[in-house]
Design a protein around this nucleic acid. Sequence first.
DNA 1: AGCAATAATTGTTGTCGTCAATAGTTGTTG
DNA 2: CAACAACTATTGACGACAACAATTATTGCT
Lengths: 173, 173
Amino acid sequence: MLESPASSTEHREPAITRQNVTAKPIDAHEPWMRGLHADTGYLLYRLGLRSGQLFNSCLQESGLRLRHYAVLRYLATTDGTPQRELSARLGYDPSAIVGLVDDLEKLGFAERRPSPDDRRSRIVVLTESGSDFLRDTDEAGLRVTGELLGPLDPAERETLHALLLRIAEDGLN
Amino acid sequence: MLESPASSTEHREPAITRQNVTAKPIDAHEPWMRGLHADTGYLLYRLGLRSGQLFNSCLQESGLRLRHYAVLRYLATTDGTPQRELSARLGYDPSAIVGLVDDLEKLGFAERRPSPDDRRSRIVVLTESGSDFLRDTDEAGLRVTGELLGPLDPAERETLHALLLRIAEDGLN
DNA sequence: AGCAATAATTGTTGTCGTCAATAGTTGTTG
DNA sequence: CAACAACTATTGACGACAACAATTATTGCT
């Protein structure tokens, strides 16, 4: 499990050599930038991708990925959650949840416990080390976010967060 | 709402209809929501995912996906682009570009032309129908964006767009 | 008791990104 | 000017992952 970080950590060198493109500063005033990023939806998609990559590369050293992290954070808020609820709330397929919880269990971050009410249901709970891990990586997450939100000052970050949150709660999930 | 991904090959059913799940109102004041969406980076990731899905489901009827759209929009801004530039600027692997341009060529939206300077290079240009298609889908894109940004008024959308753009130009690409 | 619905799980399929290898072409250099 | 290194587009292979269908065990209904 978890092998080969391999690739995209330091993905900043597209082999600039000779007549290559003049390593450009790239600002939004160039026409191609406006053409590409004129639409907020597409912009969101692009940034979401980058954010996910950053998060993943940060979690990679721990052997898990963004989804695992999402599950962990959800578990941290409810303490005792049947898998079907994880599936419904996080929007992942039930079959995906199986593998995710398997991994978390293998690492000792969570464990399945039988439900007292329903014997088909398995309740997933966060363990001690899972909670610890969450606390540790939380800091790393903030660091990533800080890196991502580079040019924004605190007030602007607050604004952005509030706006995104409004959108998020609209569409649920 | 739009909770279930549901979309794949043929059926694209945004399905605001079916309310099979016990739809909880879900607002950001619930503790689990704060726990999950406390971090701006993760929030961005999540919304980017949703935005991408929306875009894809919108383009699906045309037979292409978001990447094709990205290529088309880039082509629209430069008119005549070697494939290696597409690869570098959009962040896709050169081998991915091959398939994408193949599809676009097959649909008549773009075509490869030999480069006068370098016989190994192929210049991709946007055709008439490609430009038309772009204009048509641009409207659809705006509709999607509008749907996505539902609860925000025009001023807020402007603010959001500006903030996202600042982040985007920072990290290049 | 019978029967539909549900929870977790397995297996399959198609898509996608990454990496390695190849053919044709260019530029450099000894 | 001839050999070599670098580069462009392309192909093929491999692994990761999401979406569906099918299975097993259990529950609720009537």
